[in-house]
């Protein structure tokens, strides 16, 4: 299926889905109403996050030079790039939904595989507000173990995966 066809199917699917939820509310169909409530939870998040995130991604694209990304997230950056990737992740609002397109943009501006893998994984691991909530419910010890153990492992696995993907000359799709 071509990309355009796929997109069209997605929109049709979504229209049917929206109609299903609407009818569920009309005829008091419980499962449908529950799916509708879930849909509200996620769509509120996406409306709050996606449009401004793509504005920022667009501006990022024109203002940040390829050279500065290569210098900080590319081959010449050494271990520092993982620190930058984690810092960028901790301050990325919206978790992976935003991190995926940002990572894609970073890659096409010269960031390494390993750096964007660290960035995407870290963006769901160390979201600051979420971690605070976690520590208050499950205890600081739990959160400390989770973050302390996961970050080194994420860096190690991203280096391994990065080497592997450079070796096989993998190309990440370009979304323009």
């Amino acid at each position: 299926m071509s990309k355009k066809m796929q997109d069209k199917t997605n929109y049709y699917l979504f229209t049917i889905f929206a109609a299903f939820i609407f009818i569920s509310y009309l005829v008091n169909f419980n499962i449908g109403k529950k799916i509708g409530a879930n849909f509200m939870i996620f769509s509120r998040d996406m409306i709050a996050i996606l449009p401004p995130a793509f504005v920022l991604i667009g501006l990022f694209d024109v203002w940040i030079s390829r050279k500065s990304i290569e210098k900080n997230f590319g081959h010449s950056s050494g271990f520092k790039k993982y620190i930058y990737a984690i810092l960028l992740a901790a301050t990325t609002v919206g978790g992976t939904f935003v991190a995926f397109p940002v990572a894609n943009t970073l890659y096409h501006k010269g960031a390494n595989y390993s750096a964007i893998f660290v960035y995407v994984s870290a963006s769901s691991l160390v979201m600051i507000p979420m971690s605070v909530m976690e520590a208050s419910i499950l205890g600081v010890k739990f959160t400390a173990i989770r973050i302390g153990v996961s970050l080194p492992l994420v860096i190690i696995s991203s280096i391994i995966l990065g080497d592997f993907f450079s070796k096989i000359n993998y190309q990440i799709p370009e979304i323009e």
Partner: peptide, 27 residues
Amino acid sequence: GLLIGWKKFSKILGTYLKLLIILSIIL
């Protein structure tokens, strides 16, 4: 920049809508 952002957004929107359906059902 805004045009680039819009282009990227409109290209992925359908996939995000599909994701919304999947997530609402999984929950």
